[in-house]
């Protein structure tokens, strides 16, 4: 059963439209549907949309649009949602060098699951992972739908510095750190691909919510090769649509 959708107050200039209380692809599909609907046919006065796991934050300017007005318009949109068109699936391949100094917790994650590091890497590379949202730092993808054999608790105390490009696992979530930042995830590998590139003024961020990631395992030599291409600006991630 789908929970009733709730429009929650987040001050006088934002509401949070909450579709449920779980990380679940079906709930998320409704978040996306409302997001796409509001992006396509805009409500004047709405200033910003932040899609997250199970809710959509709608920020607005109350000088243009009162709360009751916004609520009425959102309810009308929600009623039509079922017919909203889902965009085609987009899968982006992220090359990752696993283990060693690239992912210092890989062996520990394997030990936690009583298996080999090779099996963990295989699990990483055999699924397409849905990016539920971006947040935390510019371009950071929140990835859910992690197979049970990968679910590993976060560190008790977060590291103060996790290098950019690090792929980690924390509880039921996977993440890739776009910039060096603190982090409590277990580190399993590193990608030479830039998720956030402030120099690129057109698309500073590589990934978008609603897209899928497929990891592919690369060795240190290929890592270096791709890193150089990324630096030159000639590397393009493999993208599959449809």
């Amino acid at each position: 059963m789908m929970e009733k959708t709730r429009i929650l107050l987040a001050g006088d200039s934002a509401v949070s439209v909450q579709f449920g209380d779980a990380i679940d692809p079906e709930i998320y599909a409704r978040v996306r549907a409302l997001y796409e609907s509001l992006k396509g046919e805009k409500i004047p006065g709405v200033t910003e949309l932040i899609p997250t796991f199970r809710s959509l934050m709608v920020q607005y300017d109350p000088r243009q649009l009162g709360y009751e007005q916004l609520k009425g318009q959102l309810e009308a949109r929600l009623e039509k949602l079922g017919r909203a068109q889902q965009p085609p699936k987009k899968v982006i391949t992220i090359p990752v060098c696993f283990g060693g100094s690239w992912g210092e917790d890989l062996e520990e994650v394997a030990r936690y699951h009583d298996t080999t590091p090779e099996r963990i890497v295989e699990l990483f590379c055999s699924s397409e992972f849905l990016i539920y949202m971006l947040g935390f730092t510019p371009g950071y993808p929140y990835i859910g739908g992690v197979p049970r054999e990968l679910v590993t608790p976060r560190l008790d105390s977060p590291r103060l510095k996790v290098p950019a490009g690090t792929v980690g696992i924390g509880g039921e979530q996977l993440g890739i750190y776009p910039i060096e930042s603190p982090g409590g995830f277990r580190l399993v590998g590193n990608t030479p691909v830039r998720l956030y590139d402030p120099e690129n003024r057109q698309t500073p961020v590589l990934l978008e919510a609603g897209e899928y990631i497929r990891f592919t395992s690369i060795g240190p030599e290929e890592y270096e090769q791709i890193r150089r291409q990324v630096e030159e600006g000639s590397y393009r991630c493999q993208i599959r649509e449809g």
Binding site: A10, G11, S13, A14, S16, Q18, D21, A22, I23, I50, T52, F53, R54, S55, L56, M57, Q59, M133, G135, Y142
Partner: peptide, 10 residues
């Protein structure tokens, strides 16, 4: 909670 959006002044 499951992470959600944050407004100015939350």
């Amino acid at each position: 909670i499951i992470s959600d959006g944050i407004a100015f002044g939350a």
